[in-house]
Computed example of a mutant assay.
Amino acid sequence: MQEKILLIEDDLELATIMTLQLQQLALDVTAVSTLNEAQRALQHHHFALTILDLTLPDGDGLSLCGQLRLCYPTMAIVLTTAKSSELDRILGLEMGADDYICKPFSLREFQARIKVQLRRIALLTTPSQPSPHNRIHLGCFELDSLSHEVHIQGKQLSLTATEFELLHFFAKHPNQVFSRAQLLDSVWGYLHDGYEHTVNSHINRLRLKLTELGMHDLILTVWGVGYKFNDKQLRRGAA
């Protein structure tokens, strides 16, 4: 069954090219050019992934990004932005986008980035057999990669697919320091200069959610190097 993709892009020539590239990946694409058209499409279809241009003729794509994350927590959201709009990219990531692509972009890069999100969707929806390897148990922290659930002190942590994969990667390597470039390569599956904001924003969102459960020091910044998963915090939380 083809995954449904919502493409929101007002440059009709670019939208045609992007649609063809997505169809090459055997995806069912609905292409619209305004926020109003996007809202109507969302009322009638369930989309696995939305590709959202932040500059649209009838409004700001940032507001739609926030609505999508709130209403469709498992949907993948990829932003397309001009290289000069750094603040919009950061705001979009902070509001829940999974990734962004700077215009102009190569078609090879575009397809590769979409494949990363499709892989995450497949992990969420493909049944797998229970195994001890599916679980990570560190003090008061429990992560189940089969059900995509995380519990801390018995309370469930609500995460997007990308946030879950980032936390899962950290938990598999407690106290090991990773640079932003290493995290981009290992979690997002690509390594390109200029996309470090993707890592920063996801870590900020993770920290906010973890802090709400009393885990404010679970992901530490190692200044000048990167980030690490602090399992000492978990042992304190379990005490």
Rank of each mutant, 00 (worst) to 15 (best):
Arg69Met: 10
Tyr195Gly: 01
Ser85Ala: 14
Leu25Gly: 01
Gln43Arg: 11
Ala181Tyr: 03
Gln182Arg: 07
Val29Lys: 00
Val225Pro: 00
Ser85Met: 04
Thr81Lys: 03
Gly139Tyr: 06
Arg205Glu: 08
Gly96Met: 10
Ser106Asn: 09
Asp144Leu: 08
Leu107His: 06
Glu142Asn: 13
Glu196His: 12
Phe229Asn: 06
Leu52Ile: 04
Leu25Ser: 04
Leu183Glu: 02
Gln21Met: 09
Ser33Val: 05
Asp217Ala: 12
His216Asp: 14
Pro132Phe: 04
Ser179His: 06
Asp185Gln: 15
Thr16Ile: 07
Leu143Arg: 03
His216Val: 07
Gly189Gln: 09
Leu210Thr: 03
Asp11Glu: 15
His197Asn: 07
Tyr195Leu: 08
Ile121Ser: 02
Ala171Pro: 12
Phe47Arg: 02
Ala161Leu: 15
Trp188Met: 12
His44Asp: 07
Ser106Cys: 02
Gly59Cys: 06
Arg40His: 10
Phe105Leu: 07
Leu87Trp: 02
Ala41Asp: 08
Val187Cys: 10
Leu143Thr: 10
Glu163Ile: 13
Val78Asp: 01
Gly66Leu: 09
Gly92Asn: 01
Ser85Cys: 00
Pro57Gly: 02
Glu3Arg: 15
His192Trp: 00
Leu234Glu: 09
Lys4Met: 06
Phe105Cys: 08
Leu7Asn: 06
Leu20Pro: 00
Cys140Lys: 02
Asn36Pro: 01
Cys140Tyr: 09
Phe229Ile: 12
Gln156Val: 11
Ala239Lys: 11
Gly66Glu: 15
Gln2His: 07
Thr125Ala: 07
Lys209Pro: 12
Ser145Met: 06
Thr55Ile: 07
Val225Asn: 04
Pro174Thr: 06
Arg235Ile: 11
Arg69Glu: 09
Arg119Lys: 15
Gln117Pro: 05
Lys83Asn: 07
Asp99Lys: 05
Glu165His: 08
Gly61Thr: 07
Val116Tyr: 00
Gln67Arg: 13
Gly139Leu: 09
Ser84Glu: 11
Ile219Ser: 05
Asp193Ala: 08
Lys209Gln: 13
Met95Asp: 08
Glu163Ser: 14
Ala112Gly: 13
Ala181Pro: 02
Leu210Ile: 05
Gly224Pro: 07
Leu52Gly: 03
Gln117Ala: 14
Lys232Leu: 12
Val78Ala: 06
Ile90Arg: 15
Asp98Phe: 10
Asn230Val: 07
Cys102Tyr: 00
Lys172Ile: 00
Arg120Glu: 09
Lys83Tyr: 01
Arg135Tyr: 05
Asp60Pro: 02
Leu56Asp: 01
His168Arg: 12
Lys232Tyr: 11
Ala238Phe: 13
Ala41Ile: 02
Leu52Lys: 04
Met18Cys: 11
Ile219Gln: 04
Ala171Lys: 05
Glu37Lys: 13
His173Asn: 15
Arg69Pro: 13
Ser186Gly: 02
Leu54Gly: 05
Ile114Asn: 13
Cys65Asn: 04
Ile77Ser: 04
Leu191Pro: 00
